[in-house]
Structures are given as structure tokens and as C-alpha cells.
Nucleic acid binder design. Structure first.
Length: 447
RNA sequence: GGCGCUAUCGUCAAGUGGUUAAGACACCGCCCUUUCACGGCGGGUUCGUGGGUUCAAAUCCCGCUAGCGUCACCA
């Protein structure tokens, strides 16, 4: 059997859409699973679309996602160049051969001279797609498409055929948007007498809008590029893990996969033919699973730049509190902002029906707690916990009734990473007592 | 509009003629609890529709409908 060689062939747009990333991932997984090669080829035949540094951007993104090409512009390989704009003579040669053979013709227009492919007027063309089966399209549907543009550059429909053949690509993995142009490619292979590669057309990644409508994932659905997601604080491995499952099923109930496991388990028959909707909820869940699997130290390390400046001795402790409550690292800054800066007083926050807390009750709780805490010299979690518990017990009210106003007074938030005792410890003695005193004063004033 | 692809819970999906139609996320309820979170338990009219084929259809065939894609000197 021929060696498996797949390719990822993006145009250099400086943007890595999730759908493209998934295409690259599947091509990579399949090649690696089969012990083959994965090629990166840049399709920059549209001069108007050229974006500077886009090639480096693509390479950097793939590296971050741990999708490593065996061959590419900067990865070596014996089938280069891997940038189409550097292969112009090759396309010209083959286009002229087609003209000589009667399968293409020159066409002159105000732009200059171009070469068009001559399509059969009758009959039909069929190709086999590994996930869709046979697909047949009447030749009458096919236009005499441009092969070589008047600027000397080839069109996608021509260049991809020449390159895939010359680079010995065995399986073409790309989006379904290419299904209807595949017969044109197949005809080209026939004209040249080449054996076409196997075709695998992937269903698109969709997004769901507020109004419930589903359409191809785009900006209106939120972050849609791999890089956007990384910036929001999703681990690259979480993104690839999630995306791998969007359209591919391992046939087991396993959902968390390392790249090595993905390579080991990947199989073409798990690919689905229907579009999949990108679900941020599930991504969040998976992200949380990765965090929970980390040690506090590991999490502190990846969260470090989101936590920012913080008492070094308490940093890992803070991270341990954040770890089980965060879906993406980007949530951290706003979640811990209160540690550095007390939000403005808001009497409304103190009112909580479930815990039977009112503004008045809050003052009644906070005052004695200040007394008790002022006497605590050993400001440790254990000591603080013991004091508060003892107070709760002696006061005869429920724990929640005590904790609720304390949390608000200490953080100004209904939701905090960790409970009251944790916050007390994090804030330290001085800040804690000051906040409680300020809150008590403000509470009394508002009565 | 022509052509093509697709169609199982809200979402990802298993399923390849006979199942109580898995599992996960989300959601809802209850429990636990130091709020939130975590954890535990439980819940939900899911096979687009109409015809066939068959003893038997989510599974096979046809029509319809819907969604998507494509009809460029873009990829």
C-alpha cells in the first residue's frame, strides 16, 4: 500500500479559523496514525489576499496546537517549494501541456491571456469520497474554469491538483465546500493520466446564534479562531481535544484525549457526514476537567499571568481555590479583583432571603465577629475557622447566616473563589479587619 | 433557481433490520454544604415528514421539507 501523505493547505490569511484547525488536525492525526507524512503547503495564489507574516503565523499556531508538519516552507521535505507562488513555472508547464493535448485553451481578455480547462459537454463524472461514498455530477454542470490566470498564477482548482500529485499526497482532507469542484479536479487527473488521491470531505463546523439559527461558525458566534480561544484562557490541548471530537467519534465513551491518544485512536470511519455545532458549554466543561487533573502547582503556573502580582507565599493557595471553579483562565482577573481592591459598598448585596440575612442582621453579625477576630494573632486557616465556627455555634444561627454578610463585607461579591475563611486568610489580618470595620460603619449608616 | 451534501434529545453523539434508542455537555429537581463551586442521586414525548420494502425500519428505497454548500482570472 502506498504511503499515507496528507496535507493542510491554507491560504495565508493571518487567521486560523477553528474549522481550518480541525481540518489540519484530522489530516495530521490520520497521517500519524498510519505512520505517514503530514505536509503544510501555502496556497498563496491570490495576490489580493496576501497578508504579510501570515505563513509564520500559521506555523506558530500549528506549533502551539502541537500539529507538527513533516514537510513545509520551514520544515524541509523533498517535494518543495511548499509555497505555491514559488511554483509558477511548474503550473505553467502543465497548463501548456493541457493546451497542447486539447484539454485546455487560451483565452484573451482585457486582463491578458488566461488558460481555461475544456470540460466535456456530456456525460458525468463520479468520484469516491471515503465518508460520503460515490458522488456523481453531470459534466454539463461544469464550467470551463480558469486554470492559469492572466497574472501567471494558477487558480486553486488547478494548483491543488498539480501539487497533490507532485507531492504524492495520498488522501485529500478538506471541507465539503470543495465537493462540487472535485469533479473538475478528477477530470484534470484523467487528462494527465494520473491516479487521483482518496477524497475525504469534512462537514463544516457551525455556530449557533442568539436567535437559535445555525450557520457556519463565524464572528457573530463569538471567538472563532484558535488564537482567540487561547487568549481567552483555554489551554491549547483543550481546544484540540474538543475540536477533535467535533465531527469525529472514537466509538467509546472516552472524551479526554492527549494528542498521543488521539493519534492512536483516530480512524476515518469515526468521521461524521453532518455538520457539528460548536458548543462553548462543552468546551468550558472540558477545560475544567483539564484544570482539575492538574496539581495546584501546575495550575498556578499556567494561571500565573492571569493572576498577576500576588503575595508569593499565597499564590499557589489562591490557585488551588480558583482551579475547580474556573472554566477558562480569562475569568481569573475579574474573579480575584476584589482581593486588591474593595468594590464600592452596596447595601442590597447583604440582603439574602435563603440565609435569612438583612441589612440589620448583617450589622449584628459583623460587630461581634470584628471583636473576636481582633483577638486572633495566629492568622491561619485553622485558627480562623475555629473562631468563626465557635461564634456561629454560640450565636445559635445557621452557618450561612453568619457567612453571608461576612463574605459581602470582605469581598463585595456574592460569589467568591473559596469561602469566608479562605478570603480572610488571603486578605490577611489588617485588610480583613479594615474591610469589616468599613462595612459595619456603612451598614449602620444605611439603616 | 440548477446541481450537490446533510437530517437521532437544546448541543456533541452511539446505533448499520429485532435495543427499555447508549454516553457526555447543558438544563431542571433533590441531597450534601461555609455563598459559589465541588460531589452524590434523580428527571426529560429525541429518530424532520409522507409513502413504500419487510413478520419486523432510527437503520433499506422513493417523494417532500428544512439546513448547508456550490455555480469567480477566491481558496
Amino acid at each position: 500500500m502506498k504511503k499515507v501523505r496528507t496535507r493542510f493547505a491554507p491560504s495565508p490569511t493571518g487567521y486560523m479559523h477553528i474549522g481550518n484547525l480541525r481540518t489540519a488536525l484530522y489530516a495530521y492525526l490520520f497521517a500519524k496514525h498510519e505512520g505517514g507524512d503530514f505536509i503544510l503547503r501555502i496556497e498563496d495564489t491570490d495576490r489580493a489576499r496576501y497578508v504579510p507574516d501570515a505563513v509564520e503565523f500559521i506555523e506558530k499556531t500549528l506549533a502551539t496546537a502541537k500539529i507538527i508538519p513533516d514537510e513545509g516552507p520551514h520544515h524541509g521535505g523533498n517535494f518543495g517549494p511548499y509555497v505555491q507562488s514559488e511554483r509558477m513555472e511548474i503550473y505553467k508547464k502543465y497548463a501548456e501541456q493541457l493546451v497542447a493535448d486539447g484539454h485546455a485553451y487560451y483565452e484573451e481578455s482585457e486582463n491578458g491571456v488566461a488558460i481555461r480547462q475544456k470540460m466535456p459537454k456530456t456525460g458525468e463524472t463520479t468520484f469516491f469520497d471515503l465518508i460520503h461514498g460515490n458522488i456523481t455530477i453531470a459534466n454539463a454542470e461544469l464550467e470551463d474554469q480558469i486554470l492559469l490566470k492572466s497574472d501567471g498564477l494558477p487558480t486553486y482548482n488547478f494548483a491543488n491538483v498539480i501539487d497533490d500529485h507532485l507531492m504524492e499526497v495520498s488522501h485529500i482532507i478538506r471541507g465539503t465546500e470543495f465537493i462540487t469542484s472535485t469533479p473538475k479536479h478528477v477530470l484534470l487527473y484523467e487528462f494527465f493520466g494520473w491516479e487521483p488521491p482518496a477524497f475525504i470531505h469534512l462537514a463544516p463546523v457551525m455556530g449557533k446564534a442568539e436567535d437559535g439559527t445555525v450557520s457556519k461558525l463565524s464572528k457573530r458566534h463569538g471567538a472563532t479562531s484558535f488564537n482567540d480561544l487561547v487568549e481567552m484562557g483555554y489551554l491549547p490541548e483543550v481546544i484540540t481535544n474538543y475540536v477533535a471530537l467535533l465531527g469525529w467519534n472514537p466509538k467509546t465513551n472516552q472524551e479526554i484525549f492527549s494528542m498521543a491518544e488521539l493519534i492512536e485512536k483516530f480512524s476515518l470511519d469515526g468521521l461524521s457526514k453532518s455538520p457539528a455545532v460548536f458548543d462553548y458549554n462543552k468546551l468550558d466543561w472540558m477545560s475544567g476537567e483539564y484544570f482539575k487533573a492538574m496539581t495546584d502547582e501546575e495550575f498556578a503556573a499556567v494561571a500565573d499571568k492571569f493572576i498577576g502580582e500576588f503575595d508569593a507565599a499565597k499564590k499557589v493557595y489562591l490557585a488551588s481555590l480558583l482551579k475547580p471553579r474556573v472554566a477558562k483562565l480569562g475569568e481569573i482577573p475579574s474573579a480575584i479583583k476584589f482581593l486588591r481592591e474593595m468594590p464600592p459598598f452596596d447595601a442590597e448585596l447583604y440582603v439574602n432571603k435563603r440565609n435569612k440575612v438583612t441589612v440589620e442582621k448583617s450589622a449584628e453579625i459583623i460587630a461581634p465577629v470584628i471583636e473576636i477576630l481582633s483577638g486572633v494573632e495566629d492568622w491561619t486557616f485553622e485558627a480562623l475557622h475555629e473562631k468563626i465556627s465557635a461564634f456561629t455555634e454560640s450565636s445559635g444561627v445557621k452557618t450561612g447566616t453568619v457567612m453571608w454578610p461576612l463574605r459581602i463585607a470582605l469581598s463585595g461579591q456574592k460569589v467568591t473563589p473559596g469561602g469566608v475563611v479562605e478570603i480572610l486568610y488571603l486578605l490577611g489580618r489588617e485588610t480583613s479587619l479594615k474591610r469589616l470595620a468599613d462595612a459595619l460603619a456603612a451598614l449602620r449608616k444605611s439603616l
